[in-house]
């Protein structure tokens, strides 16, 4: 390769009387180039965005435990939530999909909280000695009723309460749902 074999002015070579013809060639080449890129990128992005069409589980009530397993001492206890879960091509009949804290008071009131911290999604722990919930990731604290305890907590809202009902006078059913993290408002994940 010799230096003279390269024609390299900054604006490109001047075609003799071919300025207009060159212009159309450039337009055509560019348009075709765009089409060539469109197909692989377009098909790829369509598949990439497919998850937007997928919906979260129904959020219907799930049997979590029995009253016998939940003494009325007002202390929160953690229970796994077992449900049918669709995961792409698989449908699992009974898989642990999350966990809840259940708490039964003397007045036979039952409260349920999703274990996931509303700040950034870590699972919170209930500390029996301190009598409150602590998120191990960013130290948010929540009272036993699920409210924000320390005003310095990074969480924007209290623990997410879930609807509970007692069926057949002993079964504890919880309407299990996950909520978007990081926001003051409780918005279900759909």
């Amino acid at each position: 390769m010799s230096d003279t074999s390269k024609v390299a002015p900054a604006t490109g070579p001047e075609g003799v009387g071919g300025g207009r013809r060159d212009f159309f060639k450039k337009v055509f080449a560019s348009v075709i180039g765009a089409i060539l890129g469109l197909f692989p990128v377009g098909a790829g992005l369509t598949v990439f965005l497919d998850p937007l069409r997928r919906k979260a589980g129904t959020g219907g009530p799930i049997r979590v435990t029995t009253l016998e397993a939940l003494p009325d001492d007002g202390v929160p206890r953690k229970f796994p939530v077992v449900a049918t879960r669709v995961d792409a091509w698989n449908k699992f009949r009974s898989q642990r999909v999350g966990a809840v804290y259940l708490r039964r008071t003397k007045g036979n009131q039952i409260e349920a909280f999703n274990v996931v911290c509303p700040h950034a999604g870590c699972p919170v722990d209930f500390l029996p000695q301190e009598g409150h919930y602590l998120c191990p990731c960013h130290n948010s604290t929540f009272t036993v009723q699920g409210k924000i305890k320390d005003a310095g907590s990074p969480a924007a809202r209290g623990l997410d309460s879930l609807a509970v009902e007692v069926r057949n006078r002993r079964e504890v059913w919880v309407k299990f749902q996950n909520f978007e993290a990081g926001q003051a408002k409780k918005i279900p994940v759909t």
């Binding site: 197909f39 098909a43 369509t46 598949v47 965005l49 497919d50 792409a88 091509w89």
Partner: peptide, 13 residues
């Protein structure tokens, strides 16, 4: 199979 039959545009990709 999931790409081919269930994901939108999967057959084309």
């Amino acid at each position: 199979y999931f790409i081919q039959d269930r994901m939108r545009g999967g057959w084309l990709l």
